[in-house]
Amino acid sequence: MAYIRKRNRRIFLIFLLPAMLVLFLTTIYPMIYAGYLSFRSYDLAKLFVPRVFVGWSNYAEVIGSSEFIHSLITTFKLMAMTLSVQLVLGVGIALIVTQKLPGMPLARTLLMIPMMISPVIVGLVWLFLYFPELGYLNYFLSFLGIESIPWITSTNWALWAIAIADIWQWTPFVMMGTAAALQSLSPEPYEAAMIDGNSRWDVFTRVTLPQLKPVLVSLMFLRAIDAFKIYDIIFVLTKGGPGDSTEVLSMFIYRQSFTFWRMGVGAAASFVSLVIIVVLITLFFKSLQREQHA
């Protein structure tokens, strides 16, 4: 026992400590620093030099501002839009591409491509499609009898324009995870259900979905954590506009810090966002551990 403990300590020191130190210095320390900055005021002449201690006033300003609350609501609205569509479409496509038919493995592979494309490029190609007057999307839609839609120039449509780009990039993620889970399901419950004379829809809702549930929950958590951080696509497509219709939390922080140069307010909002993401991550890990113990 003593030998093992000594060996463990050596493995810990040589192998694990460097990573923990690096991550502490590069992640935890900047976060603590962000916390420190959020209690300071700033001078427009020396932007990046924190000045006097101002207590909770930056936080009071953030939480009391209707723009911040609006950005928070927009973030969760966008999250709800993208996650629900990605879940339904992803599971639906997974059911198609897991059929034992020729060409399906290739289709699965091709459908994964969007995930590995830089979000800036995703934003740019959708900008190309949405572009007022010129973009091809409205032209394609006209064949379905849909009238021209002012995608990125109207406050009603801009959030959907962003959601569609995100849905395009990340539905494959739900598809991929669901397809992997579907292929590892055991066939027995299906045979039993089919013998009992259930319809396909009944089999899907009563046999398949309950078995997929843990995987789908995990996939949705990972998507939620990502959706909370969404930035690049919005930066390319709308920069938060028109008006403030697509100003999500990360855009709010960006504009406060780098457009209005209110560093303290930006830092305070950053800290609020860190608290929210910690809650999301903790819930995710709790659900993962519950699944492992089950």
């Binding site: 900047p30 962000a34 900055l37 909370f228 939390l249 922080i253 810090s257 560093m263 966002s273």
Partner: peptide
């Protein structure tokens, strides 16, 4: 979220 640590 990257945006939360970009200022530090």
């Amino acid at each position: 979220p990257p945006i939360a640590v970009v200022v530090p």
